[in-house]
Every structure is written in structure tokens, then in C-alpha cells.
Design a protein around this nucleic acid. Structure first.
Lengths: 214, 214
DNA sequence: GTATCAGGATACGTATATGTATCTGAATAC
DNA sequence: GTATTCAGATACATATACGTATCCTGATAC
């Protein structure tokens, strides 16, 4: 193994990322409270000194972690959107895509749920988190608007609200799945998501038809 | 304030309940990890000695707390069910009832969400929690079955699964509401719940009609 | 009324947390 | 090559956690 020579900046950036990686794993695994600064630093191969040299506090690292994850997710969502080969009108499969992408892995999901819990309790943190959440919601709402246009129906419920509903269901289902995996299996989870989306879309279509007929 | 004379058993029972009350408040407010045994005992007006005299550990108290809350909820749900004056076929209002009852207050909701998070991480605890969750789900499923019967439609999705969907949505919405109260307002939350329930029921009805026509 | 018993307080031992202050060695500047 | 600077290690000062072992005091038994 060849020891690379790194510039100061590169080295610093590397430790920052390693600390974030370690934090993601540990916070997902043990929870935000239980994951100590010491644990995180050690898991990344450093000491607390390195931690405090790169972050002001655990909260500081945490919000940074969420930001990083959010940016990753945004990039993936945009990629999904940009892909013109997918049949846009297959609403269910698209819903599955977004759902699958929303919490790409369990770690990602867990840190966001931890974040929500913290936000409930800490007003300062809540403000920071909500800035990210609002972006997320806007992205999903855009997708929904797009669907409606494609299907040619006016949404009965504002897309922003439907986005919140979709996100809520997705999060609820995912948490159910992780805490009761025996009951909320993968297929059931997907089925519930699609039933939700499908029902609303088909109902909208049916009503549009009947209105047209009047 | 007259100092009551209590028997040993009554006194013990009283401290147990006071400890549980204090724990509920504190765990909801600060989280399971942050709520220390010391804090809980002190808030209840006791010391750690009393705590360990009544519970084996924090986990032990926590599961007891959940059990107590679950029993309270069950009683209320049964009361709701037993009331024959309510128009059963108003599905939305019934859904609202159940939703409102599911997490009667924020404290109750928070401890259950804490429980889910712990269950994800601790297999032993998960087993205990799931025993309670299964009961909860069965109760909701019964309600759903009842609705379907009343409406006279065969459920396209098994009631057990719909129950899970309903619970997931309710929990997701509630968590959204508590972490982003500015966006997920009360009315929007209720609207989302009813849209979900309503869409599925109406769709089922519409399809039953069209099938009948074939 | 005296002996017993146990609920709950106090004390103890140990582990681990956060954050700051100081030190050190390797990367930069000149 | 020497001086400087700063990323990260070490040391320090506090605080707080859990759980057990012991003690005290008021309720029970007789």
C-alpha cells in the first residue's frame, strides 16, 4: 500500500469526508445520542482532536451530513428525471422509483428520521432541517405536477400537499418495515405505495371523465 | 394538603405510576437516551433508588410505559367502536376518529416513535414491541373490515395490509407535522388522511359497480 | 409494643460524555 | 534549509450516566 502524499487542503477534505462517512454509519446504527464524538472519530481512524478541528459540534457535523446526503439524493433524482427512455405515464413504476430513491439505503433513511426527531425537540435545528425538507418536497411536487400534466387531469389536491402525503406514507412505511420487517415486507411496502398513488390518479381520471360528460 | 395514609402496596403502585408518568413526559420531551433514570426519578419526586426498586432497567420501564399506553388506547378505541350513535358509513369521519385516537397526544406519539427507532436497533426489544404492534394493527384491521362490509364491497387489498398503510401514513404525517409544523398543518394532515381513505373506498365502490355492470 | 420487613434514600464504584487548552510533526512559504 | 503554520494528537477539567450495595424509616405482623 503506497502512502500517498497529500496537500494540506486535500488531506483536510479527506478527513472531513471520512468523519462524515463514519458518522453516517454510526448514527444510523446507534442513534444520534448514542453515537459519541469519540466513537465517530475513532471509527474514522482519528481522535477527537481531528473532529473538533473539522466541526464545531456534533450538531454541526450532523447538519453537514444531512446536507451532503440531500445533495446526493437530488443528483440522483435529477438523473431519474432526465432519463427520457422511461415511460413517464407509468405512474406506479415512477412512484416506486422515487420511493426507492428517496431513501436509497437504510442508513440514509435512519439519519433523516433521527433528524426529524431532533427537529421536533430543537427549534434551532428544526429551522435548518426544514430548509432541506422544503427543497425535497418541492422536487417531489414537481414530479407530481409533471404526472398530472401528462395524464391531462387537474389535481384535486395541490401537488405540494400530495408530495407531503407521499413522503409521509413513504417514511411511515419504511419505518414500519425497519421496525417490523416480518410484517411489513418489501412487496407489501411497494404495494401500499402504488395503491396510494394509483388510487388518487385513477380517481382523478375517472372524475375528469364524468365531469367532461356532464 | 392532607397527607394520606397509604398501604405498602398502594404506595408502591403510586410511585410506579408516578415514575411512568414522569418517564412519559421526559422521554417524549428529550428522547429515550437523553432522559436519564436520574431525571425521571427526580421529575417524579423520587431518587434513583425508587426507580430501581420498581423497575429493572430503563428498557424495562419503557416497555411497561408502552404497554400502559397501548391499553389506554385500546380502551378508547373500543369505546369508539361501541358507540352506535355514530354514522358508520361516514368513512372519512371515522378515519379521522381513529387517526385522532391513534396518537391521542403528542407525548404518546413520541414515545411510540422512539420505540420504533429502538426496535430497529435492538432485536430483543423489537420482539417485545411487535407483540404490541400486532395487536394495534389487528384492531385497525377489524375496523377496516367492518367498513368494507358496511359499504358492501370486497376489499382489493387485505384489510391487514390496509391497516398497515393507514398506520404508516398516519405516523408519517404526524411526524411531518411535529417536525415541520409550519408546512404540515392540522387541516392538511386531516385532508391527506381522508384523501387516502376516501380514494381507496370510492375506487373500490366504483369498480364494484362497473364489475356488476359487466 | 416490639420485631420484622421492604420501599425508597444515600453512598459508592466505574464508565463515558463534551469541550478546551496545549503540544507535535509534517506540509508550506521564502 | 530555516521559519512558520496548522491538522490532528494528547492532556485536562467537568459533568453525568448506570447499576449495586448499604442504610434508614415507616408500614406490617404478632
Amino acid at each position: 500500500m503506497s502512502r500517498k502524499r497529500l496537500s494540506r487542503d486535500d488531506s483536510r477534505e479527506q478527513t472531513t469526508q471520512r468523519l462524515l462517512d463514519a458518522a453516517q454509519k454510526l448514527i444510523a446504527k446507534k442513534g444520534l445520542d448514542a453515537a459519541s464524538v469519540e466513537n465517530i472519530a475513532a471509527a474514522a481512524g482519528y481522535t477527537r482532536g481531528a473532529f473538533y478541528s473539522n466541526f464545531n459540534s456534533k450538531d454541526d457535523l450532523f447538519i453537514e451530513l444531512l446536507r451532503r446526503d440531500h445533495e446526493k439524493a437530488t443528483a440522483e433524482l435529477n438523473a431519474l428525471r432526465g432519463d427520457p427512455s422511461l415511460p413517464v405515464d407509468h405512474v406506479q413504476s415512477r412512484a416506486r422509483d422515487i420511493y426507492g430513491q428517496m431513501y436509497r439505503d437504510n442508513e440514509s433513511f435512519m439519519i433523516w428520521t433521527e433528524a426529524r426527531m431532533l427537529a421536533v425537540r430543537d427549534a434551532r435545528f428544526r429551522a435548518k432541517l426544514n430548509a432541506l425538507m422544503t427543497e425535497k418536497r418541492a422536487q417531489i411536487a414537481d414530479f407530481i405536477r409533471y404526472f398530472y400534466e401528462r395524464v391531462g387531469v387537474a389535481p384535486a389536491v395541490p401537488p405540494e400537499q400530495l408530495a407531503m402525503g407521499f413522503m409521509s406514507l413513504a417514511e411511515g412505511v419504511k419505518l414500519y418495515m425497519m421496525s417490523s420487517p416480518a410484517e411489513m415486507t418489501g412487496p407489501i411496502a411497494e404495494s401500499l405505495l402504488t395503491v396510494f398513488v394509483d388510487s388518487i390518479m385513477r380517481l382523478a381520471r375517472l372524475e375528469a371523465d364524468s365531469t367532461r360528460r356532464d
